[in-house]
Design a protein around this nucleic acid. Structure first.
Lengths: 113, 113
DNA sequence: TGTCTATATTGACATACATCTATTCCGGCT
DNA sequence: AGCCGGAATAGATGTATGTCAATATAGACA
């Protein structure tokens, strides 16, 4: 089952308990967000005017090796938070806003009455 | 610095890149959410009428040892997602909706124009 | 005081993960 | 074809993490 589909059919945490399968799917995405480097990469991609970021731009923002950045990009891509497209020698990444939106909805807190 | 404060002053991912300190703080919370058992525990606590869950209720919902559940509760508590209160022999956990709300806001996707 | 129940802590262990170096893959260029 | 630069993959390594059994702690009650 696709991860985005799991997110779509998972109720907000505050509405009813997740079943084991939903929890496993959702946890994969949160785990991807549970690393400071990946969070910064995602925020760079998500906040970019035009929506596209070249890998070289990301690599330049960190004091980490190129393979490490590549690894983190793969993790984010595998859970459906970003997509990639190769053009000539460069690979461009962009956000998948639907995934982020589903996550946000999942975390919507109950009305503080 | 308190984790909730870091969440409060961190811009939505899609607005501007997180700095290293913000990312480290936010990542701690997402890492706590990055485990299926903890997600299910949190959803049990968050969706409970009355807001309180006894540890024994949680333990009964999993085929895991009591120390393991206790460990996961501590992780969720350490990042400010839940709080605990002891009354007589029992310990009750409840959601901290502010933390969940801050996280949700952080993930708010950019307007899909 | 002693015992019983509920929860937390400790210590051990196997697995997962972040990072690096070395290498490979892919396009463009000469 | 051969080379070069950008990016991905493979393999290695130290550290973090999820789990358990054993033990400790806290409170109720006899």
């Amino acid at each position: 089952m696709e991860l985005l589909q799991i997110l779509e059919c998972s109720p907000p945490l505050a509405r009813e308990p997740l079943d084991a399968e939903q929890a496993a799917g959702v946890a994969r995405v949160f785990k991807a967000l549970g690393d400071p480097v990946r969070l910064r990469i995602l925020s760079i991609v998500a906040s970019r005017e035009g929506g596209e970021v070249c890998v070289c731009d990301i690599t330049g923002a960190f004091e980490l090796s190129q393979p490490t950045i590549s690894h983190h990009l793969k993790v984010l891509k595998d859970v459906g938070l970003i997509t990639s497209e190769r053009r000539a020698s460069w690979v461009y990444y962009r956000l998948v806003p639907e995934t982020l939106g589903e996550l946000s909805a999942l975390l919507t807190a109950p009305a503080t009455v």
